[in-house]
C-alpha cells in the first residue's frame, strides 16, 4: 500500500471508529435504560394533540437556493487549486480569476434582481 492511500486509510478507520462509538454507547445504554412499551409512546409528537395527516410536505422555494449553491460550490472547488498556485501564476492568474469571479458575481446579481433571493 502506498503512502497516499495509507493517508486516506485513516479516514476510513475514523468512520469505523465513529460507528463503533455510536454502537457501543447505544449497546451500553440498552443494559441500563428501561423498556416499558405502551402504544401511546410511539405516536408522532405533535405538541400533545393527535397527529393530523401523515408525512409532512416541504416548501418548493428551497430548491432555488440549492441550485445557486451548486454553482458557487463548484466555483469554490476551482478557487482552491488556484489559491495554492497563485504565487507561480502571478498577475496572469489573478486576472483570470478576477474575470471568473466577476462573471459569477454578475450571475448572483442577476438572480438578486430577478427576486430569487427574496424569501416570500
Amino acid at each position: 500500500m502506498t503512502e497516499y492511500y495509507r493517508q486516506y486509510l485513516a479516514v476510513a478507520v475514523f468512520i469505523g471508529a465513529a460507528l463503533g462509538m455510536v454502537g457501543a454507547m447505544l449497546g451500553a445504554g440498552r443494559l441500563v435504560r428501561p423498556h416499558r412499551p405502551q402504544p401511546e409512546k410511539y405516536i408522532t409528537y405533535e405538541a400533545g394533540s393527535d397527529p393530523v395527516g401523515g408525512w409532512g410536505q416541504s416548501n418548493v422555494r428551497y430548491y432555488i437556493y440549492a441550485l445557486l449553491f451548486v454553482i458557487f460550490d463548484v466555483e469554490a472547488a476551482f478557487v482552491f487549486p488556484w489559491a495554492v498556485h497563485l504565487e507561480g501564476l502571478g498577475f496572469y492568474g489573478l486576472i483570470e480569476m478576477a474575470i471568473f469571479i466577476v462573471v459569477l458575481a454578475v450571475a448572483l446579481l442577476y438572480a438578486w434582481r430577478k427576486g430569487v433571493l427574496r424569501w416570500a
Binding site: 447505544l26 441500563v32 435504560r33 428501561p34 423498556h35 409512546k41 405516536i43 408522532t44
Partner: peptide
C-alpha cells in the same frame, strides 16, 4: 440521558 427509554415513533 443514560436512563432515558429508547423510543422510535412507529411512523
Amino acid at each position: 440521558f443514560l436512563q432515558k427509554e429508547d423510543i422510535m415513533p412507529e411512523q
